[in-house]
């Protein structure tokens, strides 16, 4: 099977971990090429001794079986990033005043696209409520009263 590589702009190297997480949530029909059955991925290379300032590698590529498959995933990622921004905006504009302070500290799952929301004690509880209500879309979790879901305060690496 042929392999197509499309270089990623070095200015976008810091976005790669974020993009990878989004790819995991894309529906299989977007992640996997319908013609060739291969998943699109991102591969880093050239781990030289003098890497660029933003990443420990000098090159990264989208890798897929065809250009169309890569285009589809890039479009899926772009769309998901927009939907995450919209979900955050919905939280600030509408949900904050509905949920705070009564649910402060709980987790809200916002379905990307519809912006329907479900509150639970944790991600599992909120997600179970969303799925039980028939919502199959990707969910974005936020902690009520906070701009993110969790804090990790121990330094790493």
């Amino acid at each position: 099977m042929s392999e197509v590589r499309r270089p990623i702009d070095p200015r976008d190297f810091t976005k790669i971990p974020r993009i990878r997480e989004i790819i995991k949530t894309l529906p299989e029909e977007i992640r996997v090429c319908s013609k060739h059955g291969k998943e699109v991925s991102i591969q880093e290379s050239d781990f030289s001794l003098n890497p660029g300032p933003a990443a420990p590698f000098n090159r990264a590529d989208w890798v897929g079986c065809c250009e169309e498959a890569i285009d589809k995933v890039i479009e899926g990622v772009r769309e998901t990033l927009e939907l995450i921004d919209r979900a955050k905006q919905t939280y600030m504009d509408e949900l904050a005043r509905k949920l705070e302070p009564e649910h402060t500290g709980e987790i809200v799952a916002i379905e990307l696209g519809t912006n329907d929301y479900f509150v639970g004690d944790d991600e599992l509880d909120a997600s179970d409520k969303a799925r039980a209500a028939g919502h199959a879309g990707a969910l974005f979790f936020l902690r009520v009263g906070s701009p993110y879901a969790h804090r990790l305060m121990t330094p790493r690496q």
């Binding site: 949530t25 997600s127 799925r131 990707a138 974005f140 979790f141 701009p147 993110y148």
Partner: peptide
């Protein structure tokens, strides 16, 4: 079980 969920974390930095 990856159930199409995403969440943001804030790190110490």
């Amino acid at each position: 079980n990856y159930d199409r969920g995403l969440e943001e974390f804030s790190s110490v930095t």
